[in-house]
Nucleic acid binder design. Structure first.
Lengths: 78, 78
DNA sequence: AGAAAATGTTACTGATCGGGATAATTTGCT
DNA sequence: AGCAAATTATCCCGATCAGTAACATTTTCT
């Protein structure tokens, strides 16, 4: 079974990841503060991750992705 | 253009991510030490990430994924 | 212009990370 | 099975940095 992959965006670095987070958050009319509170994180953290902070803790970033509705997929290439 | 998504594994937490990293690394007959050196990271870091350390820095984890040949994709769901 | 949202700055707590060494575990070989 | 080598998991130490709160400043939108 094939799925339309047109919405799949490759993630190569934290800048791209942050961009996706921001875009998706705004698409839902959420503020950084709302997302932050929903995840138990600081507004500060959300702001920095959206700007591509490479030293952010990955566990918290995963919370953020879940909160704004972005699924993550790993694809082992050959 | 359609891509076969059959190898796409959803990532919900760091434990799953670590599992994928380890599986792919072994599939290429690489040791943690080899991967670590190739990324400029410590063997300890590689070990901890594969064990699902949630506080690892996301930028370094992305290096790891690249090094072992795992592509990451984001999918904004509705 | 005015309100809301995002970013800059500072200070403080606490944990990450690396190196090196050492257990513990797994792998390979006879 | 049993033993040795290789691989992986932990431990200690010190330096560095992430994360947060609070307030100031800037940007964005109506």
């Amino acid at each position: 079974m094939l799925t339309d992959p047109s919405n799949l965006t490759p993630i190569h670095d934290t800048a791209e990841l942050g961009k996706i987070l921001r875009t998706k958050r705004k698409a839902q009319n959420l503020t950084q503060g709302e997302v932050a509170e929903h995840c138990g994180l600081s507004l500060r953290f959300v702001s920095e991750v959206e700007r591509g902070k490479p030293t952010a803790e990955i566990g918290k970033v995963l919370y953020l992705l879940t909160a704004v509705g972005v699924d993550l997929f790993a694809d082992p290439r050959d």
